[in-house]
Design a binder for these strands. Sequence first.
DNA 1: GAGCACTGC
Length: 697
Amino acid sequence: MASLPILQFEEKIVETVEQNPVVVIIGETGSGKSTQLSQILHRRGYTKSGVVAVTQPRRVAAVSVARRVAQELDVNLGDEVGYAIRFEDRTSGRTRIKYLTDGVLLRESLSNPELSEYSVIILDEAHERSLNTDILLGLMKRLVKLRPSNLRVLITSATLDGNKVSNFFSNCPMLTVPGKLYPVEILYSKERPTSYIESSLKTAIDIHVRQPEGDVLIFMTGQDDIEKLVSKLEDKIQTLEEGSCMDAIVLPLHGSLPPEMQVRVFSPPPPNCRRFIVATNIAETSLTVDGVVYVIDSGYVKQRQYNPTSGMYSLDVVQISKVQADQRAGRAGRTRPGKCYRLYPSKIYQDEFLDATIPEIQRSSLAGSVLYLKSMDLPDIDILKFDFLDRPSSDSLEDALKQLYLIDAIDEEGSITSIGRVMAELPLEPSLSRTLLEANDYGCLSQALTIAAMLSAETSLLPGRSKNTEKKRKPPPDLPDGSGLGDHIQLLQIYEYWHEMDYDIGWCKENDLQVRGMRFVRDVRKQLSQIMQKIARGSLDVRLNESERERRRDYKNLRNALCAGYAGQLAERMSLHNGYRTMGFKSQLVQVHPSSVLGTDDQGMFPEFVVYHELISTSRPYMRNVCAIEGSWVMPIMKKLGNLNVSKLSGGSGRIADGEEKASDLLEQKNAGTIQNDQESRIQAARERFLARKANK
DNA sequence: GAGCACTGC
């Protein structure tokens, strides 16, 4: 421990923190910043007046770093050193150093906006720019002004964007702490390969034949490419002459791999055997594989982005940033000097790669975050003017406001409603928290809780695609089908079934449900029940007599509640075919996702109206997770859409206007006006169609 | 009849 580079900087760090409310620490990999900064400040008395908080973007990191610090200080975890993550708070009144996820700290700031418990807040790994860290950065800027005498903020960042963070905090000082990384030689390709799978294969084999021992880590974009490369690599290794080089094993590594397959990369390789680890981004920050000496970097990553004007998500393969490329290269120098083979020319790195990855806050729907900030009641904060390190587009903020207005979380002036306040308490997307509140009024809260919990874990629940032919021959799993009413109802039925089976793990396995995911659902449901307990109007048990009755009535109340929560995510079927038109702010043609269990009528037609959980554009625009609703529930929502006035929602003065932008703002406002007129006529047309249809019946 | 990078409250 004494050899950690950061300890040589102790005096300098303490001196700087003493004199400045905010300090940026550029801590290179292996500098020991995550474990040592808190201990330095503890030694220097900063824990006498309050707790030192250290945030981490990931749960495992918060737990493992806390564990190590407790060990180094020789105390029991949960005493002087503790951690807090969702579902688990291991802190006590004695805790002086507290590791927590950025999400937990953000949630704490909801009940205590001054975060008065803390004397120091360290935002670790801020360069990863998680959505929560970005919001915390904005809140910290405000907080250091409110508590100038008794709060210190430290932000750790990467070399490439330290200046930006320092500028954001009025040019606060910046300290660089070197890391303990071995040198990594960077080798560029002469040009971009036509197929980076083939190019990775060739590079990997070259390394295997020519280079001394050491594992190879290969960065790919997704499961498909990983599987392809793994099998090609295995074939190729087979063909190499016996004894011409050492043995080799090839291991895939990605998020949808079952945990027992993931941990294989942590067990040491057999002697005289080289490992090839073919991984997604998961190996960039989340998992660290020991023994890697060679890295092959394709230069690409798969990224999910949200388009606020269409309300649609897409998953795109994009070029990585310089920070990411350097992070990947660093993976080769952890145990000894290494090499990184970049499958792109250095000119592309220099000229085309962005310095840092586009932060999540500019790639996500912000409805939840905006509601959150609104509920904090910060008198000096106007959402559209909130001081972000990287500002989300006004389209994105306006989209969030519109969504919130449609589900009654804010009123037409943009002020938070009493409904909105309760919603902000729930760790859910606004659409789902709104559903819970409505369900409470309709007497079907217990079912809505189940659906909200299931959707919180949805991606890791249902069986993934299996190219395994053996599995295909198995009889189809014995899972309920949502009674034709759609995916939400199916998720509910699956959980109720599991409940009847006494939460049997074997049953999950038989039905290809991910055990980890189902356990997570159970935890979430419990947490949500605890929060709802104080306002719940009925029992929160999974299964009730009442819900039996409700089931016979086609889950009408429940679907009605979903309709209220998804008021901004409504779609109307075309009259002649099974395509849908979304009825939100911008009408679009979309399809029901093929994985949906939504049923059809005698003529093979889907229901006239559905709500959807999300729009995702892959090969085509799809609605994922849909639920059938009744036509008569649609009218009030259309009316509300008609009343929408964006400039009023954003607080009248509205848009971000500083000097130069004014002209374009005016133009945008004008456009917003015409969009709104279009919208009105569209809504009018929908209304007429709706009435005509009703008359026909 | 198509497909899912990674986190987090």
